[in-house]
Design a binder for these strands. Structure first.
Lengths: 224, 224
DNA sequence: TTTGACTAACCAACCGGTTGGTATGTAACA
DNA sequence: TGTTACATACCAACCGGTTGGTTAGTCAAA
């Protein structure tokens, strides 16, 4: 749970390393949001977990909201790294990239040491109607994911069936909704396998939108 | 915003009507959960909105958790009433019932006076990992919805394509995930039309699981 | 190379207000 | 008269945020 690393020491002054302090605070916030939500997390708790005093906290962040924003941003970057293989332009068939995307999501559900849930989804649920600035950041991250997925789907459509009757952006929103809804349900019924089954069905559905001949590209193993 | 009904009076003693008091408290809680979440809602706020004092609150509910449970239960009953047309056994083709289900969800997104969101989804997100009793109640409601939908899908499969290669319960979980995920995303990007587009795509996908001949049953207008 | 002025990082103690919850009293109904 | 429904007044603990002050690093002048 609490890592005995150099960033937190039981007693005495913290070493003077502002970036490490900032990171420790943000990472503690992300962890606490994932475990109990943002509203239920107090600044004192964040400080305790990061091994930082409250005075120091408010030197780095002007408010609790501010670290909420930083946490969303941190999670956004974490996601960008996680999905790198899918988002990056490799010259391979875009359908294969979509296959990578599914594989990455599937992989995310398989980590035994972490409950499969999402800072952006949690912050969305909690702040969408009560905190405009946090809502806006969460929305931006949701849109970023959808744009990336939509770009892949549009490219695959352009290449394989430009006249097919579906809108890539709509399909991307559907996929994002399945993803968010599955994580929400998976953690609530304490059964992450429902997430994988949903991803499997969505992948199958997506495959059905493309011609039979290229269908297998969506299911090819990730070349890493 | 605040309804000037008989349940709240500015000054003086509240009329002696324990059931009305209880209802007022629960309905205030549901409303506040929908607008700002459970953790961000205080008992004082609930009391103020319901026109009840705190002493009275703790006469009816032994803790904040307890009214959280009551709110989930209230929402569950609200849902049962909302979906009645779809869940009830009418002798009509089960595929038509599934069509009703989609129409009801679609209708739920269309109310201009209410943001399309769900107490169960909110409570799931907030409590799944930090409050076992609330998590369990939310999970039970998610399972109830899925069982009802799954029963319809299973009946439709039995009648129209008993040998088809899909599991009705899996499909029902997928549908529930799309529903929850769509509401989450719809309110965050402030665009409920994404929910309707997602429902439309899921309906189309479901139709594709059944033989062409019966497809239209899923799209027939609700006979009410 | 020392010194000293300046700044950013950090800290313990504290602030007014709010939290979930309680103790106690009172009025209405059976 | 006893029980239930309500109200008032209160509590310790905690909330987000501020205070005034200490310490460590930077850099320029001597």
């Amino acid at each position: 749970m609490s890592s005995p690393d150099s960033s937190s020491r039981g007693t005495g002054r913290r070493s003077r390393d502002p970036e490490a302090t900032r990171s420790a605070l943000i990472e503690a916030t992300v962890d606490l949001i994932l475990r109990q939500g943002f509203a239920a997390t107090s600044v004192g708790e964040i400080c305790k977990q990061a091994g930082v005093t409250k005075g120091s906290f408010f030197h780095h962040f002007e408010s609790k909201d501010a670290i909420g924003q930083a946490a969303i941003e941190w999670w956004g970057n974490f996601g960008t790294a996680l999905y790198e293989e899918a988002w990056k332009d490799s010259g391979r068939d875009p359908l294969e990239h979509i296959g990578d995307l599914f594989s990455i999501m599937e992989g995310f559900t398989l980590d035994e040491n972490r409950v499969c849930t999402c800072v952006v989804g949690i912050m969305s649920q909690e702040t969408a109607q009560s905190n405009e600035s946090l809502r806006e950041m969460a929305a931006r991250e949701l849109e970023r994911w959808t744009e990336n997925a939509g770009r892949l789907i549009a490219a695959a459509k352009e290449r394989h069936c430009p006249d097919a009757d579906f809108d890539p952006e709509d399909v991307a929103w559907h996929l994002n909704s399945v993803w968010q809804g599955s994580m929400l349900i998976g953690k609530t019924i304490r059964n992450p396998s429902v997430i994988r089954r949903n991803l499997c069905m969505s992948r199958e559905w997506l495959a059905g939108l493309f011609p039979d001949g290229v269908r297998s590209l969506l299911f090819s193993k990730q070349t890493n």
